[in-house]
Design a protein around this nucleic acid. Structure first.
Lengths: 199, 199
DNA sequence: GTCTATACTTTGATAGAC
DNA sequence: GTCTATCAAAGTATAGAC
């Protein structure tokens, strides 16, 4: 495998082109998306808001989709990792509470995810496929442990619970974006109650 | 209120322009989307597949978004209504089993939903906001009844369960589109198990 | 290595002919 | 009611300045 091959979030192998400048662009792009989402964010608008030409952006990112995925991935990475929480309902609640402060990034996530469904392949498709695989695996593993410890009901398969946790989080965020009256955190807590063993 | 005002799925009031031809276009458009989703479906591609000019499509639909929303709404309406099922986990499983045969329309749904999140207003935004409100209300009502009948555990609020059902269905469909190995129906059945009272 | 300038192609949308 | 012609904006690609 070549060292210059791209990975899913657009980084290059051993010879990144302009790591520092690239990071700077990424940081400023996140600021642009944080409030207002990806609404009407053409490559040219983003470039204008950052203060460069749209062609300069394409010097660091091969396409608009790659830039957007990199922005989301970078924003996700820069989150404080959950404070000593094992993957499960608590980490999802933690993420939800954080996300209510950055609706633009939540919108960006949903938009990129939907766009990735339409593509046969591409950066977005690979990114989200790997993301879901990784999430399901780690949550399943964690839930299985919690089942053995009596913290989670063990009469249902952990794989299903993991997929349900992720699905519920994603789906609830969408409902919340359309109607902030939907209680994101409280509804997730109810899901947590469903997971607890029958006393 | 004017009779010519559009409703959310693009129908007009008392003077529809070309109802028959419009339906014909809608039907053929559904066929186009059924297999391959909205992937690369520009207005011109759709028009070409149907056999008209792209301007002709815009004669019946004010915009691309309105056409797509109308296509999805029409496809949804033409489904056989659930056979005597009250809104709840069973109707979601019924819908999921149907959707596995028409992945293109599921993709279209997710795409339109994500696009509606980015718009301040517009046809899509209104359509999905009303759709979720209506679904949550009818499912909540139905679940509350089933709680009284002892079919659903009553130690959690029915409103939360309704939102969770919808969210889980939407989220699982996305995971399933990215990885058909995800058991759509079986995972929903597990959610159904979580809803049942503790024997 | 970094970026501007520029041009190519496709898109959604509009105007007006028939 | 449907077409052709046309538009502005978009994503993308390339050439070359510094």
């Amino acid at each position: 495998m070549s060292q210059d091959e791209d990975d899913v979030i657009g980084r290059r192998g051993s010879r990144p082109k302009g790591v520092a400048r690239r990071q700077e662009i990424l940081d400023r792009a996140i600021e642009v998306f944080r409030e207002r989402g990806a609404s009407g964010t053409s490559l040219r608008k983003i470039a204008e808001a950052i203060g460069v030409s749209h062609a300069a952006l394409l010097h660091y990112f091969d396409s608009r989709e790659q830039l957007l995925v990199a922005v989301y991935a970078h924003a996700e990475q820069s989150h404080d990792d959950p404070p000593e929480l094992r993957p499960g309902i608590d980490t999802m609640i933690h993420a939800a509470r954080r996300n209510v402060g950055i609706p633009g990034l939540v919108t960006l996530y949903s938009t990129l995810l939907a766009a990735s469904l339409e593509a046969e392949d591409g950066v977005g498709r690979d990114f989200f496929t790997l993301r879901f695989e990784g999430l399901r695996r780690s949550i399943t593993e964690s839930l299985r442990l919690q089942q053995r410890e009596g913290l989670v009901r063990d009469d249902v398969p952990a794989e299903h619970l993991a997929a349900l946790l992720i699905a519920a989080s994603d789906g609830l965020q969408i409902q919340w974006l359309l109607d902030p009256g939907v209680g994101l955190e409280s509804t997730l807590r109810t899901l947590g109650a469903l997971l607890r063993p029958r006393a």
